[in-house]
Amino acid sequence: MPLSIAEENYLSTSLSQKPPCRPDGRDPHTFRPLDAAAGILPATNGSARIRLCDGGECIVGVKAEVEVCGGKPVEVQCDIAGQLNNSPLQSFLCTTLESAVRNALPPSHLSISNKYTYKLYIDGIILDHVSHPLTLLSMTIFLALLNTRLPTLITEDNTDENDEIGLPQFESDWQQSRLLCDDWLPPLVQLAVVAGRNVFVDPTGEEAAVSDGGILAIWHQSKVVGLRTVNTRDSSRQVFNVKSVATAVDVLTQTSREVENALRKVVAST
């Protein structure tokens, strides 16, 4: 539902004043409550589901397949309900998250032998979204990767040349499998919107619609490793103060740390 001019004006004024006033009374760095579960699909290597209180929902399944070394190690694909394939939003989500995961994942975690490697297929389905689905998809992928298990290898890790025909053999006992993220944490991509001098995380659809623009931060190993502006509203006007970028990094650092800890607790409890 598009906002009327009066509504838009009211919302944008209340968001940009100091201190800001969000329609639902949240702090700038507070998330809405969400419902998260990991390990929901036994047929995948790792899976997760997150549901937001506005009805937005995302399901992610991770499948690892054995491939010959040399290809792309990670592939991220997503389906957005109600949108055609190759929509701009879909390709934005896939490329952003694919490069984030690929850059963060050490190649040694996927290697099997000198010839074979795992390839991770991360597939997401966004069943419904009211607000921008980037944070939702990123958090679900984070959970699914934390939940991902890879079977242990039982063939000797031969570096011989004559091992080329031998396909790797795996332990059939799933209890013996190893976690992909034993000493490694997946990246988190968080979106914040800027309104005047204020920065808000987890924006609702209306907040994003009246904001000056969005900034995404890729968070990995307790650092912000990437930053990008995102168009969160239809118009081409997207101008914000340089100081807002610094504020955004501060706010996103704080919330990413908290979100990361919260999601790790979800996996630990399942």
Binding site: G61, D79, D123
Partner: peptide, 10 residues
């Protein structure tokens, strides 16, 4: 919508 991860092989 058939999830790509729904089958044994993706």
């Amino acid at each position: 919508t058939v999830a790509p991860f729904s089958t044994i092989d993706r």
